[in-house]
Design a protein around this nucleic acid. Structure first.
Lengths: 152, 152
DNA sequence: GTGTATGCAAATGTTTTGCACGTCC
DNA sequence: GGACGTGCAAAACATTTGCATACAC
């Protein structure tokens, strides 16, 4: 799963005529295995822990590139980026992002199988509004954290 | 409509034992008549244009207060605050915020009559996730701006 | 070798904190 | 008069820009 993401990411970078550099490799790596949204500074810390020094500026720029290639999606409420799901990566359609954000552990879960196409169509019709993308972020408490709280 | 918002805002402030100060009055006033999300610095500029000098710090703090009283809602994608709708102000329930954000004119429209209660219930059941609040922001182009583009 | 990407420096912008003073009730 | 709110100063934090160097291809 993790490897698939990396593979697709490198492919997309190459296809766009961009280079596969160390920072880009590392960041794709972190994204592939993280289930929280990563901010540039968090990525920098992760890199530091691996003994790698990298400037936040670079990380900002890498995220920008990855976002343009639809490899990551910004999670507004957490001010960070999360990898797009593998199935979505291959789709050419406008992508639906629905996230469950746990206030407690900061984990980001993706809601699958629900799509808002009908709602969007209705809105486009009723409001004359052309939808380009959307953010749907549910803030709350995840399964695991509910359990922990219950035990405590 | 504008007056109703102000009235409710002052009422809520009083009920919470908070004071109705000049900055709070002014900010409520701007919010009441604005159909875009206002950032603290934008509010400061608006105040300046009226010949009133006010510190951004104060504005940040006023927004914090208003948010706690459910008088404003943060629009993440625009990094600003928009007034809550009058009907919602009286509701004690968790509030649903669905916004249409126009990339072009920055206007924020509220989607009415659609609620995600069913989707939320399904998510809570399927994912064991307790939803506290959500952000649903559709980015796109509004009716007016589509028209303008068409003419140009 | 060439052109893109990175790192560094620094500017710019945003948000938060502490404290003294002002003002609303 | 007393408590809460504001303004100021400054710190902390986040983001962007320009330019020289390094590195992927």
């Amino acid at each position: 799963m993790k490897d698939v993401y990396q593979q697709i990411a490198f492919e997309k970078l190459r296809d766009a005529g961009l280079k596969i550099t160390k920072p880009r490799q590392m960041i794709v790596d972190f994204l592939a295995s993280s289930d929280t949204a990563l901010s540039p500074y968090e990525v920098q810390n992760l890199l530091q822990k691996k003994g790698i020094k990298s400037d936040v500026v670079t990380i900002y720029r890498v995220f920008e590139v990855l976002e343009n290639l639809s490899l990551v999606h910004k999670v507004l409420a957490f001010n960070g980026y999360i990898r797009c799901h593998t199935e979505e990566l291959k789709s050419l359609e406008e992508i639906c992002h629905h996230y469950l954000l746990c206030k407690s552990c900061k984990r980001v879960e993706e809601v699958e199988g629900e799509d808002l196409t009908n709602l969007e169509k209705k809105i486009e019709k009723n409001y004359g509004f052309k939808i380009r993308s959307h953010y749907l972020e549910f803030m709350g408490v995840c399964k695991n954290c509910k359990k922990k709280k219950g035990q405590a």
